[in-house]
């Protein structure tokens, strides 16, 4: 995948995130982060340090829109770090892989597992840092669970649409 296409996808995800998902305020609980898909789409052959820096940059762009520096950056860096680690466990030789991590690339079951881990880890970091306290932990936990479910479903939907077009 060339970079222009990748940036196009990222901008589209960002618009969807900022214009739509950030404005839904579902019950004050559900806040899905679909832009995480951009990290899954990063070319896997890039050096891992570069993947982490790109993850940090993606998170920082998100942070600009939420007026809370560092929060999404922390979540994205962790996701960008974990992704190649997990993919290496799914395929024979990660060094020979190229391009985005998709259902076609690593298989349905592996994709579901990878996505679940990345979404839950990312959302846990984001919502915990946002709350920055353990005093309302039940609420934060509920936020993490519900938002993760929605993000998971939305990203899967997008992945399906992408695969079939």
């Amino acid at each position: 995948m060339n970079w222009l296409k990748y940036i196009g996808i990222f901008v589209m995800l960002l618009f969807l995130q900022v214009f739509l998902l950030d404005n839904l305020h579902w019950l004050g609980l559900v806040h899905p982060f679909i832009y995480l898909w951009a990290i899954l789409m990063l070319p896997i052959e890039l050096p891992r340090w570069l993947q982490m820096f790109i993850g940090a940059a993606i998170g920082m762009v998100m942070d600009l829109f939420t007026h809370a520096p560092g929060i999404h950056m922390a979540g994205c860096v962790m996701a960008a770090y974990l992704r190649p680690l997990m993919v290496a466990g799914y395929v024979q030789d990660i060094d020979r892989m190229k391009g985005a991590i998709t259902i076609t690339a690593i298989g349905m079951g592996n994709y579901l597992r990878l996505l679940a881990v990345l979404v839950v880890v990312h959302h846990t970091i984001v919502f915990m840092l946002e709350a920055f306290t353990f005093s309302h932990f039940g609420f934060t936990l509920l936020q993490i669970i519900l938002s993760s479910l929605f993000s998971y479903a939305l990203i899967l939907m997008f992945e399906y649409l992408r695969k079939n077009t």
């Binding site: 809370a68 922390a74 840092l129």
Partner: peptide, 27 residues
């Protein structure tokens, strides 16, 4: 790679602390 992860997370954490401190929102 792991050290880089730690470094970047520390940077992010510093951002969070600075930003939350009465929301000066440098960025």
């Amino acid at each position: 790679n792991f050290l880089l992860l730690l470094g970047l997370e520390v940077v992010a954490f510093v951002f969070v602390l600075r930003g939350n401190k009465y929301q000066q929102v440098a960025a």
